[in-house]
């Protein structure tokens, strides 16, 4: 046993136990760690935002280099605070309109590219998949799976005989997919749990290497 000497390692171990104590029931130790977490997260977000965005993108260009174009985001940003002034509270809609328009406009081509074109490219059969028998079979199963899953989500018309069979097959693919995602997520959480035990046994208690 080789106990840690660093204050921060002991504090990290204390916080880990505080959070684990919730497995028994909600208690003041858990609440303390939870509230501390919220406070530190807020402070961290503010600091990162200041150092990575506000200072290099607004303060330096506007107040040091005199680039007046940067007044635009400053004014729009300040409009957020008009919600506390009833007479001009509608101005809060200006930055929201700008950000929403930007986000919606940026989302359309990005979604078409990443979620439609790339996924269609991945699903269709290419000459390469016919080079090996197993690859051909897996690619065919994958293509049938995609078509059947999409068919399952098609609710605009009543299902006929063929589309009903396809939708039923789609459910099978969806259930296997959900099961696989669940298993994968559980394993990710388990690996985090192992990480915490490694921290406690190695970094804090020093009983494992």
């Amino acid at each position: 046993m080789n106990l840690a000497t660093s204050f921060w390692t002991w504090f990290g171990a204390f916080l880990t136990f505080c959070i684990f104590s919730f497995l028994y029931k909600d208690n003041p130790f858990y609440k303390f760690a939870e509230h501390l977490f919220v406070g530190v997260s807020v402070g961290y977000s503010i600091s990162i935002s200041y150092h990575n965005v506000l200072y290099p993108d607004l303060i330096v260009p506007l107040f040091r280099n005199g680039e007046l174009l940067n007044l635009v985001p400053l004014i729009f940003g300040l409009c957020y605070f008009t919600r506390f002034l009833p007479k001009v509270s509608w101005l809060v809609r200006l930055p929201m309109g700008l950000v929403l328009g930007f986000g919606a406009g940026a989302a359309i081509p990005a979604v078409i590219q990443a979620s439609i074109i790339k996924q269609v490219q991945g699903a269709i059969l290419t000459p390469d998949v016919f080079k090996r028998f197993d690859l051909t079979v897996w690619a065919l199963i994958s293509l049938i799976g995609v078509i059947c899953t999409v068919t399952y989500f098609f609710f605009s018309r009543e299902r006929g005989k063929v589309t009903k069979v396809m939708a039923d097959l789609g459910i099978i693919f969806l259930m296997v997919g959900f099961g696989a995602s669940f298993g994968y997520t559980v394993m990710a959480r388990i690996s985090l749990l192992i990480g915490r035990f490694q921290f406690l046994l190695r970094d804090w208690l020093g009983v494992i290497k």
């Binding site: 979620s115 439609i116 996924q119 199963i141 799976g145 899953t149 999409v150 989500f153 693919f173 997919g177």
Partner: peptide, 15 residues
């Protein structure tokens, strides 16, 4: 294979 096929189907809908 089956998981990715289901994910792609869902992704098309989301997109």
């Amino acid at each position: 294979v089956p998981n990715l096929a289901a994910k792609r189907g869902i992704l098309f809908g989301i997109a």
